Amino acid sequence: MSSHVNKLTKEELRCSNASRLWKGLSGIWGVIKDGLCWSVQDGTATDFWNDYWLDGEGKLASMCAADSHTMPATVASMVAANGGWNWNQLCQWLPADALAATAAIKPPRPDAGADVPGWRWENNRTFSVRSAYKALTADTTTPLVPISTDNTNCWSRIWKLQVQQRVRVFLWLVLHQRIMTNVERKRRHLAISDVCASCQSEAETIIHVLRDCP
């Protein structure tokens, strides 16, 4: 079942006599599928490069140091003969933070059962309309973060502001330190320097962009 969920396409979900709800889900299946994260068990249903399965990390295809991600690979295929991670391969492809995140997860085992899908925008991995709506309305170029119960009051205050939806989402991302500044780009190994491109004098943090940059 887990493997089937991961391979479903919009076309497979469509049928002429489906309910309006089902037709609506098929229309946004790409967004729903992108919201899936995987708890790795036997590792056979989880795409090593293109699925979300490492806590705190994005898709590994966006941060690997080689073209190996163009070849299909499951998480199970990255296990060595001794049952541990195949570090000889992984150290050639992944940056240090991704290697550390991988080391924190037990390698999949054939007898561990099927990989389990969850909803990555909630800490408890359970789907909610609130987080799905946020995923649909947010700027897709800006990374989202899971909603925490500690931040519920903050989000509620932002939600009540009489401004455009994109402004609410932007404020929420600012308060959660999720704006893609040069500091964040460098942390993700997407840039060499974290210096502000405008003033060329300080690191481009969120507070620098919004307040301190001359």
Rank of each mutant, 00 (worst) to 15 (best):
G58Q: 08
G58W: 05
G58E: 06
K59E: 05
L60R: 02
A61C: 09
S62F: 12
M63N: 07
D67P: 00
D67M: 09
S68I: 12
H69V: 10
T70G: 03
T70Q: 15
T70P: 02
M71R: 15
A73Y: 03
A73D: 06
V75N: 00
A76V: 06
A80N: 10
A80Q: 06
A81W: 05
A81R: 09
G83M: 08
G84Q: 11
G84V: 06
G84D: 15
G84N: 13
W85N: 03
N86F: 05
W87V: 05
N88K: 13
N88L: 15
Q89T: 08
Q89E: 11
Q89Y: 09
Q89M: 11
L90D: 03
Q92S: 10
Q92P: 00
Q92K: 12
W93P: 01
L94Q: 02
P95Y: 11
A96R: 12
A96T: 09
D97T: 13
D97Y: 09
D97I: 15
L99G: 00
A100H: 09
A100V: 14
A101W: 02
T102N: 00
T102Q: 01
A104I: 14
K106V: 08
R109Q: 11
R109M: 13
R109V: 05
P110M: 15
P110G: 07
P110S: 12
D111R: 06
D111M: 05
A112F: 09
A112I: 11
A112H: 06
G113L: 08
A114G: 05
A114K: 10
A114L: 14
A114S: 12
D115I: 12
D115C: 07
V116K: 13
V116M: 14
P117W: 09
P117C: 04
P117E: 08
G118F: 04
G118R: 05
G118D: 03
W119L: 01
W119S: 00
R120M: 08
R120D: 02
W121H: 06
W121Y: 11
W121R: 12
E122H: 01
E122N: 07
N123V: 14
T126I: 15
T126S: 07
T126D: 04
F127W: 04
V129S: 03
R130D: 02
R130F: 07
R130G: 01
R130V: 10
S131W: 05
S131C: 03
S131H: 02
A132T: 11
Y133E: 08
K134W: 14
A135E: 05
A135Q: 10
T137Q: 10
T137R: 13
T137L: 10
T137I: 13
T137M: 13
A138P: 02
T140S: 11
T142Q: 15
T142K: 15
P143C: 07
L144Y: 07
L144N: 06
V145W: 14
P146V: 10
P146N: 10
T149I: 14
T149P: 02
D150T: 15
N151R: 12
N151D: 13
T152G: 02
N153I: 15
C154T: 14
C154S: 12
W155G: 04
W155A: 08
